[in-house]
């Protein structure tokens, strides 16, 4: 049913019409205990595109990201209000299986966090618990495809039994991306995936993100405006828990409607 859900709340409906929206947030509010972190955010995330969430620290962009796979559930005292749909299904409905949701909405974190297991087992972890591969041969295949898609196969194929932690930082992050891909999700959330990496590793990940968008819908939180401009097709600007501006990346960076967006991307604050 998600086909024609239109972006009636977004700033640029006429350009987004071509693609169907994968994730739609309506009036999303988030409280951490007494403190409100998000105020009535309305955002639609189109399929097979990269959507960048930008904004100064503490603006709520990571909070919004973590709403999409309900990772906020892990945090004590966190309450989410509003309606968030993935493929038209409200994921905060009581009968939603969170575990299943997270298998469909994968996530890559700020700091590479490979499990203290072998590279092979890191990739196989997800498919194994979801029973997606039966037998060693099938699993080998899943591992290889995932590593290939994450651009890590050539570097890792001879050392699959070595611990994931023995890789370099950039390789570890690609391993984490491969691990997320292995479960074959629809959406991949990335929370500042390059902030712990050097520029070369960052460039590789950015290339990778661009390749991955053919198969997956990607939402990326980033502190780097250049990165947002390079990798994303759509950009949403958050400030103080409010979604200030949202639209095509080109338009946001060349011709922002809101003065605060203008100030932020030109470096006047943030």
């Amino acid at each position: 049913m998600s086909v024609a859900e239109q972006l009636e709340n977004s700033g640029q409906p006429e350009k987004a019409v071509e693609r169907k929206s994968k994730v739609i947030g309506k009036d999303i509010t988030v409280h951490y205990g007494e403190k409100q972190a998000l105020f009535d955010v309305n955002l639609a995330i189109p399929e097979h595109q990269v959507t960048a969430l930008i904004g100064p620290s503490g603006c709520g962009k990571s909070t919004f990201l973590r709403c999409i796979n309900r990772m906020n559930d892990v945090i004590d005292g966190c309450r989410v209000g509003g309606e968030l749909t993935v493929d038209g299904v409200d994921i905060y409905r009581s009968n939603i299986d969170v575990v299943e949701l997270r298998a469909r909405v994968g996530m890559v974190f700020q700091k590479p966090n490979p499990f203290p297991k072998s590279i092979y087992d890191n990739i196989a972890y997800g498919p194994r618990i979801h029973g997606q591969a039966s037998g060693r041969g099938e699993m080998d295949e899943v591992v290889e495809t995932s590593l290939r898609r994450a651009g890590l196969w050539d570097e890792a194929k001879d050392r699959l039994e070595e611990p994931g932690t023995s890789l370099s930082g950039g390789q570890q992050q690609r391993l984490c991306i491969a691990r997320a891909i292995a479960v074959n999700p629809d959406v991949i959330l990335m929370d500042e995936p390059c902030s712990a990496l050097d520029p070369i590793a960052t460039a590789r990940i950015e290339e990778l993100i661009d390749e991955l968008r053919e198969r997956f819908t990607i939402v990326i939180v980033t502190h780097s405006m250049q990165q947002a401009a390079r990798v994303s097709q759509r950009t949403a600007f958050f400030h103080l828990g409010v979604l200030v501006d949202e639209g095509e990346t080109d338009q946001i960076f060349t011709n922002p409607k809101d003065e605060r967006t203008q100030d932020y991307i030109t470096g006047r604050f943030g």
């Binding site: 796979n69 990772m71 892990v74 575990v99 299943e100 949701l101 997270r102 298998a103 469909r104 994968g106 996530m107 974190f109 700091k111 966090n113 490979p114 499990f115 203290p116 297991k117 972890y125 997800g126 618990i129 979801h130 984490c176 691990r179 997320a180 479960v183």
Partner: peptide, 27 residues
């Protein structure tokens, strides 16, 4: 055991007991 490992496991759709058995206990 760092919270990031738990998060990593939950984000892959593992339940709490799967996370404990396969990530936290080995670590």
């Amino acid at each position: 055991v760092p919270q990031s490992l738990r998060d990593g496991s939950y984000a892959l759709g593992a339940t709490q007991s799967e996370t404990i058995k396969q990530v936290i206990l080995p670590a």
